[in-house]
Amino acid sequence: MAEQFDHPAADSPDAPRAVRPWVVNPQTGAVDLDRQPLPGEPEPDYFALLGLPRRILLDADAIEIAHRSLIRGLHPDRFHAQGPQAVAKAQWHSSRVNDAWRGLKTLEQRAAYVLTLAGENLDERYRPPANLLMQVMEANEAIDEAGHDPAARVQLLDLLSDFQAQRAVLTATLAQAAASWDAAQAAADPAAASTARADLRAVLGQARYIDNLIGRANTALSAPDAAYPAN
């Protein structure tokens, strides 16, 4: 069994070297399936499970690499020779690593997760701008009415690219707000954090509508019996 090793403080600043994955010793790569939290050490959150700094803006490749290297060592297939108990523990630890990876994949997910960790209740009502709802409603109706009419489908493509453009703007805004949030955390600046939090909420409150709509439009356009407009 690997020796016990220190776990970083959950709120440590973002120096990546200080961050360690949960049951894998980052120096030796040794896996300790029985590792328990040290006294006073919090249960690991998604970032700690993957050994990543708690930031919204993270390099997608870095997340992939962290997940891959951990799952390579922790996957239950690796423990078959050590018997069913080791396999069961590996199932649990690798499931947590997979959950963390899945939960931090997108910018939106990381923003929502970080806000939740910061005590924000994302289920509370947030009212998006009224014109957004009207636009989404009308677009939904247009998708329903398009059917197989080729001209309507061409319009649908226009509509789709409009919403994709809107989504791109939201993503850019989100990235900005995320950068401000990360910076505010690093600098321990509550005023800046509060502004960033409001911005993040606003973007998250709108993104879902547009994502749903883009999904519906794509589904309608790729319907099997559809006459595809030339593009």
């Binding site: 499931s95 997979n98 959950d99």
Partner: peptide, 8 residues
């Protein structure tokens, strides 16, 4: 389409 092992 969640990677397995997965837990909740």
């Amino acid at each position: 389409n969640s990677s397995i092992p997965a837990s909740a």
